[in-house]
């Protein structure tokens, strides 16, 4: 894309970020933040980093936006809006000077960076051994599989942390409020129309992820979005957090990943894939991870249990 487009996009990103951070109304700021996430996704697209663009649009703009709007709603429902103070002008002047200095130093460091070739050629040369066409997937599940394993466990840990905020007496209950919508309203229609499309898009993303942009994280997010939409439209209810089926869905990805890693210890090191079977093993991990990530993200958005469980 042309440099003019890039310059305009960068200016827009900085402007929208300023509106999100410093704008007057909190809800407007949240709206600006979601726009900001989408613009950042465009920036990644312009840098030809399509996998990152997908992740940023789905996770950075989408799920983060939904989470923050949920927190905003909770604050709003309980009290008159909490004050949204602006620091004293002396603080603002010094903070401004300090941040200008930090930004300036970072810019100097960036300009002083020696140009390097990075690891692009190494990755492209070796990814054939894993029979993967997507270099990013090769790094995520091959060369840096350890990071990805820990990342999937970080997600689970976040869910445990969120669940630890369960109010007393509600453990084993159902997360979030029961949503009800007008059966012929916009939300109910969208709740019926979009999840099937989301399901197909999600399955496509994980299926294509080994050779084209996509992968378990992007797919998991789209699948989670389909579920969240069905819940918001009142067509489905969240499961009880102690449901064994739910626990299985949460654990299957990281558990399979760990198991493969442990078996790999017999083939020359933790997470070493058995020779000749790299691709099927990687695919199995990806599919299981997509399912677990979808379940984890959907429950992270739902939050800790708020209602007692039903049929027990």
């Amino acid at each position: 894309m042309s440099l003019v487009f890039d310059i305009a996009l960068c200016a827009l990103i900085l402007g929208v970020a300023a509106m999100a951070l410093l704008g007057r109304g909190l809800f407007a700021s949240l709206a600006f933040f979601i726009v900001y996430g989408l613009l950042i996704a465009l920036a990644w697209l312009s840098l030809n980093a399509i996998d990152v663009a997908l992740a940023e649009a789905a996770i950075g703009a989408g799920v983060t936006g939904v989470l923050l709007i949920g927190a905003w709603q909770a604050l709003n429902a309980q009290s008159a809006l909490d004050p949204d103070p602006v620091a004293h002008w002396i603080t603002r002047v010094f903070a401004g000077l300090g941040c200008l200095a930090i930004g300036g130093l970072l810019a100097l460091a960036i300009l002083a960076m020696p140009g390097g070739t990075g690891l692009t050629t190494e990755v492209i040369d070796t990814q054939g051994q894993l029979d993967l066409g997507n270099s990013v997937t090769a790094v995520l599940l091959g060369f840096r599989a350890y990071d990805t394993l820990l990342e999937s466990i970080v997600l689970l840990a976040a869910l445990v942390a969120v669940w630890s905020l369960t109010p007393q007496g509600l453990w084993g209950g159902i997360p979030g409020p029961r949503h009800r919508t007008r059966p012929d309203g916009v939300m109910a229609s969208f709740g019926r129309l979009l999840p099937p499309a989301g399901l197909i898009a999600g399955v496509y993303l994980v299926w294509a992820g080994s050779d084209a942009p996509g992968g378990a994280f992007q797919a998991g997010t789209v699948l989670a979005a389909a579920w969240i939409l069905a819940v918001l439209a009142g067509l489905q209810d969240e499961p009880e957090v102690t449901s064994p089926l739910l626990r299985a869905a949460l654990l299957i990805g990281p558990a399979l990943f760990l198991l493969v890693g442990a078996v790999g210890a017999g083939f020359g090191g933790f997470l070493a894939y058995p020779e000749g079977f790299e691709k099927p093993v990687i695919l199995a991990i990806e599919y299981a991870l997509a399912l677990s990530i979808a379940a984890t993200l959907a429950l992270l958005v739902a939050g800790p249990p708020r209602r007692p469980g039903g049929a027990r």
Partner: peptide, 26 residues
């Protein structure tokens, strides 16, 4: 071309940032 190694680490980073945001929101 954007180096695939930073790309993969950034995707990891986005997910970790989301984990923190989810806990903060809760």
């Amino acid at each position: 071309i954007t180096d695939p190694v930073p790309q993969a680490l950034i995707i990891t980073g986005i997910v970790v940032a989301l984990s923190l945001t989810a806990f903060a929101a809760a």
